[in-house]
Write a protein that binds this DNA or RNA. Structure first.
Lengths: 102, 102
DNA sequence: TCAATATATGCCTTTACAGTTATATGCTGC
DNA sequence: GCAGCATATAACTGTAAAGGCATATATTGA
């Protein structure tokens, strides 16, 4: 299966995800947002579905896609230990600045 | 240029990054950690360098690689608005549980 | 049942890129 | 300067996957 990292590497997949942040969207709307052919977008939506990042609901002929943010948590978890690194740098900078003020 | 997302999509690039979290590492050490040929690893290290995610220092014949975590911040920033989504879910769950306790 | 709309799938082509081997480059101690 | 180690680069190959077009499938309203 595709990792969450790989999922978001492709802009064609990242765009819909960003779009879905605001709520449910039909395929047609996502196609407009991405600016590629409908089949291309449908294909990527399928990948997102299969990776558990999105799910679908039927609404007449439309398929409404909804974001499933849980998997994004993996990314957040992975990032966690690194966060300390840049926060440390910011702290050091702030300390330097406050020293300069004295 | 490669986006930070694409950078981390490849395990062969993610592994060294994780390895570098602990501090400077020579290419040889990274090669062992990743388990691929030396040229393969060197190639990916170059990508990391050019993307500003790592930098090098010469130490005799060795090249010591160091992590430059700033670019990871982009990832963190991108993630920010989504974070609210899963936190909302957790809150809802907790509320449900506390209601059940009554 | 038929036409129209919305989406998915199959097939094909092309491109990007990872990995390998062989080789070049750079540095050091002698 | 030379031998030896550590790393980088070049050239090549194989593969995966993205995107396009054509077409199938599904749903609805009439």
């Amino acid at each position: 299966m595709v990792t969450t990292f790989a999922l978001l590497a492709d802009p064609t997949r990242r765009r819909p995800v960003e779009e879905l942040r605001a709520g449910e969207r039909s395929v047609g709307v996502l196609v407009d947002a991405v600016g590629l052919s409908q089949p291309a977008v449908s294909k990527q939506l399928r990948v997102l579905r299969e990776a558990g990042l999105a799910s679908v609901r039927k609404d007449a002929q439309r398929r409404m896609y909804r974001l499933d943010p849980e998997r994004l948590r993996e990314l957040d978890d992975w990032l966690q230990p690194f966060r300390a690194m840049w926060e440390a740098r910011v702290d050091a900078l702030e300390q330097t600045l406050s020293t300069m003020e004295d």
